[in-house]
Design a protein around this nucleic acid. Sequence first.
DNA 1: GAGAATTCATTTGTCAGACATTTAAAAGTC
DNA 2: GACTTTTAAATGTCTGACAAATGAATTCTC
Lengths: 245, 245
Amino acid sequence: MKIDPKSSADLSAQIAKAIRDSIIAGDLIVDERLPSEAELAEQFDVSRSTVREALKRLAAQSLIRTQRGAFGGAFVNRLSYLDAYGQQITTSTLLLSMNSVSFDTACEARYALERSCAPLSAERRTADHLATMRAEIFRQQQPGLTDEAFCASDVAFHRALVDGADNPVLSYQLAGAVEAMQPLMNMITFTARSREAIVALHTRIADAIEAGEGSEACEGLSQLERYTVELARSVMAKRANRETV
Amino acid sequence: MKIDPKSSADLSAQIAKAIRDSIIAGDLIVDERLPSEAELAEQFDVSRSTVREALKRLAAQSLIRTQRGAFGGAFVNRLSYLDAYGQQITTSTLLLSMNSVSFDTACEARYALERSCAPLSAERRTADHLATMRAEIFRQQQPGLTDEAFCASDVAFHRALVDGADNPVLSYQLAGAVEAMQPLMNMITFTARSREAIVALHTRIADAIEAGEGSEACEGLSQLERYTVELARSVMAKRANRETV
DNA sequence: GAGAATTCATTTGTCAGACATTTAAAAGTC
DNA sequence: GACTTTTAAATGTCTGACAAATGAATTCTC
């Protein structure tokens, strides 16, 4: 692990990169303890504060965890699926909100990805996944539900569908696509009629998953995509209309 | 933006969270300048070092960038697709390498996701995407190619396929799935015969994309998945055999 | 007056040293 | 042997200082 003193870049960034590369390359294995901050400072010939800033960078990426006290220190963290989900969702959400991605584009991506899970989910889903889907459909039919709660339930429904594929890598990849859509979906006001239509499609999808018919589930997802895009378009149009009046 | 002094958690983590939440909520918009470190230190009633550690955490997530000098400071960063790709790839790679994800599981996820791009790519790919795919196929036929270079070319081929769908959100999501597989693929030794088989399937896929036949491209991808899994299995078996002898 | 050079204030980057707090091992006590 | 106390090591935080960068304002030169 070496850094280039000539480089003008931040020392803490260089040190973070050096350690990060060691972790990725496998030179530092999971749960291995890094040298103490004082030792690292000496090794890299920088001050302790600089080392600390580097370690905080790594901690922000969940690459290390720190523990205080004697025999504490910084340890290489096993990146859990949960940590990865969180990062994925944060990144996806910001990417969508900061880059003016159109609703259509985000929707297309989301449903394309979900369709790739549907056949696997139809084959492997447990009774649990199915029960979650049914429960969320039931919740979506409650009259008093706010739009936000409706969207949250929608996300839960689709997560169950994705998790049913029983492939943690797929679940991880999809987490971002599904959850990052929620802020966009929250901007839509759902009328009683549109909720009814969505519930009908959800039911159709759940039925297909239960019956083990992947392609029928895909078809349902495609219709849901078309309906969602259409709905968003009409809501936006109505809103634009109201604003110009 | 407030922090809880009673909470035992690290102050720098709390401050980072407070600022991060403000960015996600949209209270801090892109390119907006944060208060200087000294001002933040006063606001949060902590020392400047603590503020700096918090800012480094955010910088590690590409949420802010810093600039030195008068009228410099920390600015809310527009999360670019490139930054997001990078984070996605790092996270995915570590997730796969640290959690002993089976080759089959990773492969299944990757090809399922790619199949979701194929129909869109068949419809929208430009001549450029197609040319890249053909060029990589050509490269893969060169005899002197190392296994690493063959894998890298494989990644480039599939990236072109994905990018052909002309949906940046999909490209972003797929970046991790495709690139994170490379270290796993690198562990396979490709014989002349297996390279030939892969090139043949790549050609079939490229032909389908060129002809605008999405489902045929999906079929090619499925065959490629089956062949890759089979190949990995035999290579691993051979290796295990050699080690026990 | 226009342009070039200089100064200046502001801000981040880095360093050194100090103290508080936490923690688990080691030593002591019964 | 079980419990308590001590202790050493490590991170967390604070203070104060200086270096380096940088854009604006000022001064200088022609």
